[in-house]
Simulated scan of single mutants.
Amino acid sequence: MRDLTMGKFIWLIKIRRCLFIVFCSVASQYAMSADPILDLTCSNRQTVLSLKEVGPLSPFQTRLSGTCKTNSIIALGGYYAQTQTVKSIPGQYVTVVAAATGDPVPYESALSATNCFEPRNCEGYLDVDDTFPYDFMISGITMSTPGFQHIEVSIYGYDRAFSTKFLVGTVLVAYTVVQPACSMNSASHLSLGFGALTSNDFASSQQVAEISLNCTADTQVNVTLVPTQSAVNGSPGVSATTLDGLSMAATWVDSSSAVVFNTPRSFAMSAGTNLIQLGFRPQLNAGSSPVGEFSSQYTLNIVYP
């Protein structure tokens, strides 16, 4: 009985030694094949977006894309991360996402499970001379404070095995925020209601849209009215409505003249509050007696320094 017990004990020890030797062999093979320094060759290392002079809180977007070739083995896969600075001050000022998936690129060295060298496979093995594409969208809005701004976004590739990083590319965004001469006090969407109308009401039924502008100094602005519905040929300022047989006439209230669609009209604005008024009056088409609801839409463009 003692011999049998001792035999089992020795047999277990031999198995443990065998497993230990196999494990060491695998670890040694991995250590010899992986490079602790991530080394890539990437085709597009920089994108520059110069917006020149812009208004405060204006949206912008740009792109960094290209292809990287591996100069070292990436045994356990790799992922992307990014850093940002404005005038050398770190922070998160813009949004950085993968263009194809919309997945956000993590800030600094936070581990990513989706933004990977191999899309959504951050554990994918890459051999020397393998290639993989990258494509990032960078979007944001300009600062509200007047003056020059310079944003730098750096996108890095990280090796999961050794946490070493490589600068894939940088995005530089430069602009100067200028305070516009005028700002609009009115809402960006205006709605005018006519209520219930009969044919006797059309001649006197007019609604007036008032657009208020506040200007810091005397200046000229150009105003253009663009109808959504089609303009009526031969009738300046008249466009169709959504009800067959009924049109809408647009006039400048200050001069009682018909609006010439898609053509800028110049207004002299003074320092302080200014008012632009447009009148809208429904009118029946010849020989028509329409019944039902109607609407008519316009876009008013105001261009000022």
Rank of each mutant, 00 (worst) to 15 (best):
Q283A: 13
T70F: 04
R63W: 02
A174M: 11
A250N: 10
S33W: 01
Y156D: 11
L284R: 06
M184G: 09
Y158C: 07
G234L: 03
R120N: 14
N222Y: 13
G279A: 08
S270G: 14
Y175N: 03
Q29W: 09
G140F: 05
T251A: 13
G147P: 08
A110W: 09
P227I: 04
M248A: 09
G169D: 06
S247G: 11
R265I: 04
T176W: 10
C122M: 07
D39Q: 15
G234C: 08
L76W: 07
L51R: 10
T62A: 03
L246Q: 04
V178Q: 13
K69F: 12
F136C: 07
A113M: 10
Q229P: 11
Y79W: 07
L243W: 01
L225Q: 01
D130P: 08
C42N: 07
V54E: 04
A27G: 01
T219N: 05
F132R: 09
L111H: 12
V177G: 07
L167N: 04
I276K: 02
S112E: 04
E210Y: 02
G157C: 02
T95F: 12
S163G: 05
V178R: 13
A181Q: 10
L192N: 04
R265G: 01
C24Y: 07
S25K: 06
S109L: 09
A99W: 02
I15G: 09
T176C: 11
E210Q: 10
C42D: 06
V22P: 13
S25W: 03
Q82V: 11
P59T: 12
T228D: 08
N185T: 14
G272R: 04
T70K: 05
P282W: 00
G237T: 06
G195E: 03
V97S: 10
S266E: 00
H189K: 10
S288Y: 01
A110N: 14
Q207S: 09
L278N: 03
C182W: 01
L278Q: 01
Q283W: 06
V221S: 01
S230A: 12
H150G: 11
Q29G: 11
G157F: 02
F148S: 15
A203H: 14
Y134E: 03
I141E: 15
Q46V: 15
V105A: 02
F267I: 06
P106F: 05
L197T: 05
Y158Q: 10
S43A: 09
P180R: 09
F202V: 11
F60R: 08
T251G: 12
V238D: 05
I21F: 11
T251R: 14
P180S: 10
A231E: 14
L300H: 03
G124Q: 00
Q206S: 14
P90T: 03
Y304H: 13
G147M: 09
S295D: 09
V128F: 00
V226Q: 03
L192D: 05
L213C: 07
I138F: 03
Y158F: 12
V260I: 12
D39R: 15
F261Q: 01
D159K: 05
A181H: 10
W11Y: 12
